[in-house]
Simulated scan of single mutants.
Amino acid sequence: MKSINLQRTESLLMELVPEALSTLKDSRINTLAITGIDCKNGKYDATVYYDGSDYTKQEKQVLNSLLSKASGHIKTYCLNATGWYKCPNFKFKADDTLEQSMKMEALFDKIKSKKQD
């Protein structure tokens, strides 16, 4: 169970990170859909999850590299917007949960159709 302060931090970052990305000129990442943020160690580390369902493995690696390079800009944006003394270090990961749930639904449908036969 996460503390209320940590949940507030994650919620605020869910608003600020997409705003910060939208100010970048790189079209590959400035419209990237952020699906979740998971803060660890207080506010020192945050994993940012983006919708990776439309990208190949190589494209995800490129996106992770671009996002890592842009993390300084994102931190500065968050610090300016919040007035915090310290901003978390961002780590970026593709969120494949939607893709996995679609595969699970397809499997359940297949099982259901076999049972009906």
Rank of each mutant, 00 (worst) to 15 (best):
M14A: 04
K75R: 15
A20L: 14
E10G: 00
S22R: 15
T97C: 04
K43S: 11
A81N: 09
K115W: 05
K57Q: 15
N30T: 07
S3C: 04
N89Q: 12
D38C: 05
D96L: 15
Y55A: 07
D26T: 09
T56E: 10
T82G: 01
W84N: 04
K91N: 09
Y85I: 13
S11H: 11
M104D: 11
T76C: 04
T23K: 15
K60S: 06
K2M: 06
G36K: 00
D45V: 13
A46N: 02
L12T: 14
R28F: 01
Y55H: 13
L16N: 12
N30L: 05
L12W: 01
K2T: 08
K40R: 14
T35H: 00
T82S: 02
R28N: 09
A46D: 01
D51S: 04
T23V: 11
Y85V: 13
G83F: 03
T97N: 10
V48P: 07
E99L: 14
L32E: 02
C87G: 05
S22W: 05
Y77G: 08
F108D: 14
Q100H: 07
Q116T: 10
A106L: 08
R8A: 12
V62A: 09
N64A: 03
N64S: 06
S22L: 10
A106G: 06
L13S: 01
T47S: 08
T82H: 02
Y50F: 15
K57F: 07
Q58P: 04
I37P: 00
L16V: 09
T97D: 11
F92L: 01
S68Y: 11
M102L: 13
M14Y: 00
Y55P: 11
K43A: 12
L12K: 15
T35Y: 00
S113M: 06
L32G: 04
T47N: 07
D26Q: 08
I111V: 13
M104V: 13
L107H: 10
V62R: 12
N5C: 05
V62T: 12
